[in-house]
């Protein structure tokens, strides 16, 4: 048996690959649900119902998808340039922390229309700066950014923990370690009344379209793709490699920081160390399932959010651990990898 590179990739295969990947991941998870002793089809039905069964459920799923779109975009823009930013989780936390600090201590008095944009930018800049550490280590010391960005995730959560236990600790929180809340004016307006869905969802969608155009229509988009496909070739063609990576890192870290800012301003109002149930890591799966396409990221983030929100309800009623959502999402990354291989190579005997 041998593999032969496909001369051109049929469009049908590109569209079918993620679908087949998701279906196979669901099938494997089905075995695990069966092992837990529950009827598989009913479990999946309840996941769907839990995610889309009511107006509240739909708004909850879209709310959960918002940070996933942003971390998915953060991974997608970085991976396209082969910059392995696995630190979205940490950048998200630093973005959230900066927003909570600036919102409660500095900008609290300003009117919402001024304060909200300023806070969103603050969050993005914090994430950006945190991403510059692994980038600098790569450019200056040729350290693989995968490990450093991963390790910094732990550092980021500890920084948050330290500050919300110290200077930022809200004395009104009954001893719970959480930061001062941001001012009410700074909270993002709701998209649907009496739900948690906020305009952050709209911001995320607009950004995915903007990034699509940046990648397909600008010089920077072309340079970042070239830097990823063939770094020496890109340098030879006149692409400033370091500067391109710097821009990519800023964009990626900024998106992850923005995800944290939007979580604070849209959902919680303050920061804790359990703000993110692994949004940063799930973003990697979101990006890979979308084959790094920023528009498709919205759809794959919706799939991931569906699994997480739906599994919450399903787990309560059927006694299956909620971790089934994480398992399915991780499995879909693995099946997607196999699918990507299949779309690039054909098997010959």
């Amino acid at each position: 048996m041998r593999f032969e590179r496909r001369e051109h990739r049929p469009l049908s295969l590109l569209i079918l690959t993620p679908l087949i990947a998701v279906v196979s991941a669901l099938a494997i998870s089905g075995i695990l649900i069966a092992l837990a002793g529950a009827p598989v089809l009913e479990a999946y039905w309840r996941i769907l119902a839990g995610a889309f069964g009511s107006r509240l459920a739909v708004s909850e799923t879209l709310t959960r998808a918002t940070p996933l779109i942003l971390t998915g975009l953060a991974a997608a823009v970085a991976f396209r340039a082969r910059l392995w930013n696995i630190g979205a989780e940490g950048q998200l936390y630093l973005g959230a922390l900066a927003v909570a600090a600036a919102g409660s201590m500095l900008l609290g008095g300003l009117p919402g229309i001024v304060q909200i944009p300023l806070l969103l930018v603050t969050g993005a800049v914090a994430g950006m700066l945190f991403m510059l550490i692994p980038l600098w280590l790569r450019l200056r010391f040729s350290v693989d950014e995968v490990v450093t960005s991963l390790l910094l995730n732990f550092v980021a959560v500890l920084i948050v923990s330290m500050l919300i236990d110290g200077v930022l600790k809200d004395p009104m929180a009954f001893g719970w370690p959480q930061s001062y809340p941001v001012a009410d004016d700074a909270l993002l307006p709701k998209l649907i009344a009496r739900s948690r869905l906020h305009i952050g969802f709209g911001i995320a969608i607009v950004l995915s379209i903007v990034i699509y155009f940046i990648q397909s229509r600008t010089v920077f988009g072309m340079q970042s793709r070239a830097a990823g496909l063939n770094p020496p070739g890109a340098v030879f063609a006149g692409v400033p490699l370091g500067r391109t990576l710097l821009k990519v890192a800023c964009l990626s870290g900024g998106l992850a920081g923005l995800a944290g800012a939007i979580e604070v301003l849209g959902v919680k109002g303050y920061v804790t160390t359990d703000l993110s149930p692994g949004f940063g890591y799930a973003g990697i799966v979101v990006a890979m399932l979308a084959n790094l396409n920023p528009i498709v990221v919205v759809l794959t983030a919706l799939f991931t959010a569906t699994m997480f929100v739906g599994a919450d309800g399903m787990s309560r009623s059927m006694g299956i651990p909620t971790y089934i959502a994480d398992v399915t999402v991780a499995l879909s990354l693995l099946t997607m990898l196999v699918g990507l291989f299949h779309s690039q190579y054909r098997i010959r005997r």
Binding site: P321, D326, L337
Partner: peptide
């Protein structure tokens, strides 16, 4: 990373 995500969530499950 895929193996890590799968193995750890599978352990918790």
């Amino acid at each position: 990373l895929g193996v890590t995500l799968f193995a750890s969530s599978f352990s918790y499950y």
